[in-house]
């Protein structure tokens, strides 16, 4: 036949996948692409960013000592006080905003410490096995068996948790056990995978294999655990203040709840309702934001879930 057209026959690499990135896609581009297709994740992120902004910049707009007005206590919502005032006549909105920093910062640090301790110990014990493994798993089991909240109550009698760092560190130290065990079990299966053997065969060090080959496979899992640990830490710190076992010297959401309950009699009267509900609503909203964002995080960090 003379009518033979043979253009493009030899191209070995024309695997017709849906999308062909011809340049290196940046992580930001990937994250944005995921969020664009997941409005709920975007909403979650917006909520989280809103609160982060509130904690970071909000307190700058207020004096260190919030003004109080004894003649205007338990005022209802008004243009001057959108959320009313508390039992001392201090603006509730200002309390919510200035009180967010301690709670959110300590919760973030607690999540960070939990994630770092749990991941590092889990990676080490799962990869090296042997002596480090038995030490770490015994420690993790020990931490897991401690009833953490009663321990916190006891600890708070001797330690005042004045700084968010102290609070975050303590919450991280009692929370890493479960994550360490979970990471360890994932590493145990990953280390037997062929690509790890291939990396060994190419002469990579154990540190390289752990950090560059194994860790990227569990980042989405760790990120999710981090976010969940953050919400857990919010509950824990707020509960400590609410129970009144910590000194109520600083202003934060937990302290607000405690005062709403003890000073404002929120259980008996409705006049302090905005004062009680404002911090509660914030806590719920942060949790809601985290939950919405979680799904998108998994897809951002796990290329196998991505489209194309």
């Amino acid at each position: 036949m003379n009518t033979i057209v043979s253009e493009e026959p030899q191209a070995l690499s024309t695997y017709p996948s849906a999308q062909t990135p011809r340049h290196r896609p940046s992580s930001w581009a990937v994250a944005w692409d995921v969020l664009r297709r997941r409005p709920t994740g975007l909403l979650g992120l917006a909520i989280l960013l809103f609160f982060i902004g509130m904690a970071a910049f909000g307190p700058l707009f207020y004096p260190a000592e919030l003004p109080s007005n004894p003649s205007n206590i338990f005022a209802g919502p008004s243009p001057a006080h959108p959320l009313g005032t508390d039992f001392q006549g201090t603006d509730t909105l200002a309390l919510v905003i200035t009180g967010s920093r301690y709670v959110l910062l300590s919760a973030f640090l607690a999540g960070l410490f939990t994630a770092v301790f749990g991941t590092v110990t889990g990676l080490i014990s799962g990869y090296y096995l042997g002596v480090p493994d038995s030490i770490i798993t015994k420690l993790a089991d020990f931490v897991l068996t401690i009833p953490s909240f009663p321990l916190l109550v006891v600890l708070s009698t001797v330690w005042k948790f004045g700084s968010p760092l102290a609070m975050g560190l303590v919450l991280g130290l009692i929370g890493w056990g479960a994550l360490a065990r979970a990471v360890r079990s994932q590493v145990l299966t990953l280390r037997e995978r062929t690509f790890i053997e291939a990396a060994r065969g190419l002469g990579f060090s154990s540190v390289h294999i752990i950090v560059k080959e194994i860790f990227p496979n569990i980042t989405s899992y760790v990120a999710m655990k981090f976010l969940l640990a953050v919400t857990g830490a919010i509950y824990a710190s707020v509960a400590l203040f609410f129970l009144g076992v910590l000194p109520l010297s600083t202003n934060n959401w937990g302290v607000m709840l405690q005062f709403a309950f003890s000073q404002a009699g929120a259980m008996y009267t409705t006049q302090s309702l905005p004062y009680l509900l404002a911090p509660l609503a914030c806590i719920l909203l942060v949790t809601f934001g985290v939950v919405l964002f979680l799904d998108a995080v998994d897809e951002m960090l796990n290329p196998r879930l991505r489209r194309g």
Partner: peptide, 13 residues
């Protein structure tokens, strides 16, 4: 290796 998919790290380009 026999299985090229297993021999490549799935989360690395």
């Amino acid at each position: 290796h026999q299985d090229p998919y297993a021999a490549l790290n799935p989360v690395r380009t």
